[in-house]
Structure formats: C-alpha cells, structure tokens
C-alpha cells in the first residue's frame, strides 16, 4: 500500500510518497510561503514522477502541527479532501515528531523547536528508543526564555532542531549550552515512514477525526462591554 504524506506546518511545503519499499519520492520547497499555490502542483508532480496513480494511494498522512495556522490549514484541508475523494483512511502526525524522528540515532535529548511567531516557540523533548524516538515532555508554547528555563531545569545534553531553534539560535545558546542543527523543517519523508509503521497496525482514522494541533495561549472571553451596550 502506498502512502501520500503532506507537510505544510512551517514555511516549507513537503510532499512524499512511500510504502513497503521505503520512500519513493519527496518534494520540498522551503521558500516563498505560498502553501496554497505550491501544494497541489507538488502533489501532481510527485505522483507523476514516481509513476503512481492516485488510485494506488491507500492512506493519506498529514502533519497536524503545531506550526503556522495558515500553512496547516492548507495542508490538512487538501489531505482531507483527497482522503474523502479516494475513500481512504488518514494518519495525522505532529510536526514535533517529524523533526525529532530523523535525529533518532543520537543519545542526547532531542528538542524540536518550531517558530510560533510573536517571539514564541512550540517545543517538546524526545528520547531515543529502539527503532525511533519517544516524547518525554508534552508539547508546549511559550516565549524563548521559557524554553531556555526548561532546558536548564532538565540539564541534559540536548540537540535542538527546527526553524524556532534556527531563528532563536543566539538566545538559546546564550542561556543553555547545547547543539543546534538540521533539520530545520519537518520531513515529509519521516511523515510517510512513521505513517507506514502505523498503517501496518491499522492505526488510522477517518478524515473527520483529523484535527490540527494549534497549542494556543489559554483561551479567554472577549470583553464585549461596548458591543453589548450598543445592541
């Protein structure tokens, strides 16, 4: 069975196809931030170059964030539309998992850090386990200082990856001695690999069950004193 993976949670648009034989095609563009314009042609291109007919796809995998709201919506709605049209199940995987998975061969703590804009980042921590990585701290959103405090509190050898680590390289290194390295963007190849392992165990869901992970700041009611007064 072939899996199509769609990844648009950061500035990158990533598409990959793979299955039993591993990854057979990938496409990544990390410039321009034109998710809506690039994604559909990218899917067509990857299918055509890999000589895969759309009917051969048995599952659609998608990066469900956290990340850019605008980017995630493009990818998740396109993935859902494809899955509904093809009547195939879906697998949603976190962008933080996708950043950590390619680093599974290090014995350090892997810390994927995604730029959340307005001076904040999304992050989580992973440990090597046989065959992959395991999340050891829940995904969090907060200012870069909070990430540094979290790193200090754990005081373990750490490897930070992701566009948030790249953007706030100096702030992080000033506060905590660690390594910052690639990958910068979640890998669509990792998405297909991880989804394939889940698909073998039939751990998939219906398109309606796929939800983006927004990880917003705590919610509050808007104070509409003005509006109530007028209406």
């Amino acid at each position: 069975m072939l899996i199509l993976g769609i990844e648009t949670a950061t500035e990158q648009v990533g598409v990959a196809i793979g299955g039993h034989e591993g990854i057979i095609a990938t496409f990544e563009v990390a410039r321009g931030r034109r998710h809506a314009e690039i994604l559909t042609p990218a899917i067509e291109f990857v299918l055509r170059q890999a000589d895969v007919d759309v009917d051969e796809l048995g599952c659609i995998a998608v990066d469900v964030g956290p990340g850019l709201f605008t980017g995630m919506r493009v990818g998740i709605s396109a993935a859902k539309a494809l899955a509904l049209a093809l009547r195939v199940p879906m697998i949603g995987i976190s962008s933080l998992d996708l950043l950590a998975f390619p680093c599974r061969h290090t014995d350090r703590v892997v810390v994927p850090v995604i730029d959340a804009r307005k001076g904040e980042v999304f992050w989580s921590m992973y440990r090597q386990v046989p065959g992959g990585v395991q999340q050891v701290s829940a995904p969090t959103v907060g200012p870069v200082d909070d990430l540094v405090a979290d790193l200090l509190a754990r005081s373990q050898e750490a490897l930070c990856v992701g566009d948030g680590a790249e953007r706030y390289r100096h702030e992080i290194l000033e506060g905590y001695h660690c390594e910052i390295s690639a990958p910068v963007h979640p890998s669509p190849g990792a998405l297909v690999q991880l989804a394939h392992a889940q698909a073998l165990r039939e751990e998939w869901v219906r398109p309606a069950e796929i939800e983006p992970i927004y990880l917003r700041a705590p919610d509050a009611q808007i104070n509409w004193a003005t509006r109530e007064q007028r209406s």
């Binding site: 850019l68 605008t70 927004y214 917003r216 919610d219 009611q221 808007i222 509409w224």
Partner: peptide
C-alpha cells in the same frame, strides 16, 4: 468573535 482563541484562529500576524 467571542473568545481570544477565535481571534488567534484568524492568524492575523501570519497574514
């Protein structure tokens, strides 16, 4: 809109 997360959903700073 009723809540601050409704506002966050619009992702105006991303636009």
């Amino acid at each position: 809109l009723e809540t601050t997360s409704d506002v966050a959903d619009l992702a105006l700073h991303e636009l």
